[in-house]
Every structure is written in structure tokens, then in C-alpha cells.
């Protein structure tokens, strides 16, 4: 297990190093200059040059890359060009919204998908199964932003149970924060749950045909009992893969949902920073997301190993 973890860890570090270079190059070659963006169309060239110098944009690219990477290693993400505040501070502020939202959405989707998937698999071919398949088909097909807008229309504009969006901040109370995240979390969770339920169902059904399931049935376990005791555990591997992918998606991919509910999350920060050419923020956030994705994958790999002991010895 230890050697397995070590191997995964070294590939993690290489991935990060490659990612940092790619991110820097991609962001830096995109046309657009943060200083001229900030100063607008009446600014004189010497004013733009003065601001570029003030922001430290006049040093060579490679130098900026090394400064950035060495900063990252010291957990110093630099200072935003447009906001003029430390990037680390901005990211941690936004994480206070994005991370709970992702966890909230993932919890909801798991809570919906697992029972639905298991239920459908145990009722294969029957009405309950068809219903779950139909609903999940709908969930995959309906875009989450449309669903979000519909929820705003119903629950915020007509029923007035929720705000149409915004985030009051955790310091104004835990429940207020959770309430503000509820509609966004549901909008994010439902399509994810639909995918997850389908994967859960088909993966369980694959298990049903396996030899060990037949053995379990043969030794006298009921169909449902065999499914719970032997099927679910084995079916979890593909489900975990999807879950890991979904978490990374939820963390960054909430951009549209954050727009619809005007939440001050990480996705919106990236979106704003890209349009303002706040390069250092874009680079640092993307790097952080890469880091998160790689870490989640690393954890998922470890979880595979926990679920399936054979993986620990295989190279």
C-alpha cells in the first residue's frame, strides 16, 4: 500500500510541474494586457507604461514564471493586478463559497443517486427501473443553468422562499449561508445525480452476472442480500471514478451556476479575471484547481485500493 501511494505521489508531482508550465504559457500568450484594460481607451501610452511597471509586468516572462512558481512553493500566490490584493486571500474567500457548495451538491447527488441506482438495479426491467432510467435521462438532458433559472422563477420570484441569489457570508450565520447555497446546490446536484445513478445501476447490473454473485446466490443469499453484501462494494469502483471527476467539476465548473445565482465563488473569480486579464489570478486559480483535481484523483486511486485489494500489488 505504501509503495503504491509513493508511486502515485511521484506522478502527482510531475503532473503538477508540467501543468504549471502549460498554464503559464497558455495564459501569457493570450492577447490582452491587464494595464491597458484597467486604464481604458483614454489612457496615454506613458500612463500604461507606468502602470505596467507598478504591477511588475515589465520584467521578462521567464523571470515572472520562476517568481510565480517559487512563490507557489512558499504558498505565496502573488498580488492580483486588478484588485491589488493578495491572490491567496481572494482564493480563500472564494473557497468559502465554492467548497461548501461543491460538498453540498456532491452530498445531495450521492444521497439521491445511490438509493436510486441500487433500487433500479434490484428492480431490473420492472416499472421502478424504467422510472429511474426515464428520470435520469431527463436529468442528463436538462442543462443545469436552465434548471437553476426555473428554480429561481418558482422559489424566489413566485414563492419568495429563497433569495434569487447572492451569498450573505458565513459570518451572518450558518443557516443563512446554507439557505443561500440550497438552490445552487440542487441545480448542480440533479444532473450529477442522474449520471451517477445510471453508472451505479449499470455497474451493479454488470456485477449481477459475475461468478461470485452466482456463488453468493447459490449459497442461499436472497437477490437483494447478495446485491448489498457483494454487489455494491464491487460496483463502487466505476462510481468512485465518476464521483472524483464530479467533485473537480463541481469545484470549478460551477461557473454558470455561480453566474445565475451571482455567488462570489471560484468559478466567477476565474471568469472575471480572464476578462480583465488578471493573469496572475487566472494562473494561480487554475493551478490550484489542477492541484485539487490531481489530489482528488490521488485519493480516488487510494480509495480503489481500499475497495479492491488486488490493485495494491499491481503496477
Amino acid at each position: 500500500m505504501f509503495r503504491y501511494a509513493l508511486r502515485r505521489l511521484s506522478s502527482l508531482i510531475i503532473s503538477l510541474a508540467v501543468a504549471s508550465l502549460v498554464i503559464f504559457l497558455v495564459v501569457e500568450v493570450a492577447p490582452g494586457d491587464p494595464a491597458s484594460y484597467m486604464l481604458g481607451i483614454n489612457a496615454q501610452p506613458d500612463t500604461v507604461a507606468a502602470l505596467r511597471a507598478e504591477l511588475g509586468l515589465d520584467v521578462p516572462r521567464y523571470q515572472r514564471y520562476f517568481d510565480w512558481v517559487s512563490g507557489l512553493m512558499r504558498l505565496d500566490f502573488g498580488t492580483s493586478y486588478t484588485y491589488r490584493t493578495p491572490v491567496a486571500e481572494m482564493i480563500s474567500d472564494r473557497m468559502r463559497v465554492s467548497l461548501p457548495l461543491a460538498v453540498y451538491a456532491l452530498t445531495l447527488s450521492t444521497l439521491i443517486a445511490f438509493p436510486a441506482g441500487i433500487y433500479a438495479a434490484s428492480r431490473r426491467g420492472k416499472a421502478g427501473d424504467t422510472a429511474v432510467i426515464g428520470l435520469s435521462q431527463l436529468g442528463v438532458a436538462v442543462p443545469n443553468f436552465w434548471f437553476a433559472m426555473m428554480m429561481v422563477l418558482v422559489f424566489a420570484i413566485n414563492l419568495r422562499w429563497f433569495s434569487a441569489g447572492g451569498f450573505p457570508g458565513w459570518e451572518k450565520g450558518f443557516w443563512g449561508g446554507m439557505k443561500a447555497l440550497t438552490l445552487p446546490a440542487i441545480s448542480l446536484a440533479l444532473p450529477q445525480a442522474a449520471i451517477l445513478a445510471r453508472v451505479m445501476r449499470s455497474s451493479l447490473l454488470d456485477m449481477l452476472d459475475e461468478d461470485f454473485m452466482r456463488t453468493a446466490r447459490a449459497k442461499g443469499l436472497s437477490r437483494r442480500h447478495a446485491l448489498w453484501k457483494h454487489g455494491v462494494r464491487n460496483a463502487l469502483i466505476p462510481v468512485l471514478t465518476i464521483l472524483g471527476l464530479q467533485f473537480s467539476f463541481l469545484l470549478a465548473g460551477g461557473i454558470i451556476i455561480e453566474q445565475v445565482f451571482f455567488l462570489p465563488g471560484l468559478g466567477r473569480l476565474v471568469f472575471q479575471s480572464i476578462s480583465q486579464r488578471d493573469l496572475i489570478v487566472v494562473e494561480s486559480v487554475v493551478m490550484l484547481l489542477v492541484f485539487a483535481v490531481i489530489c482528488v484523483n490521488f485519493l480516488v486511486d487510494l480509495a480503489y485500493a481500499a475497495v479492491d485489494p488486488r490493485l495494491r500489488t499491481r503496477t
Binding site: A156, I157, S163, A164, G165, Q259, V260
Partner: peptide, 9 residues
């Protein structure tokens, strides 16, 4: 759309 929703709500 969000601006519309926030105003209406």
C-alpha cells in the same frame, strides 16, 4: 437573467 430575478424577487 440573474439581474431580472433579483429585482423581481
Amino acid at each position: 437573467t440573474a439581474a431580472f430575478g433579483a429585482m423581481m424577487a
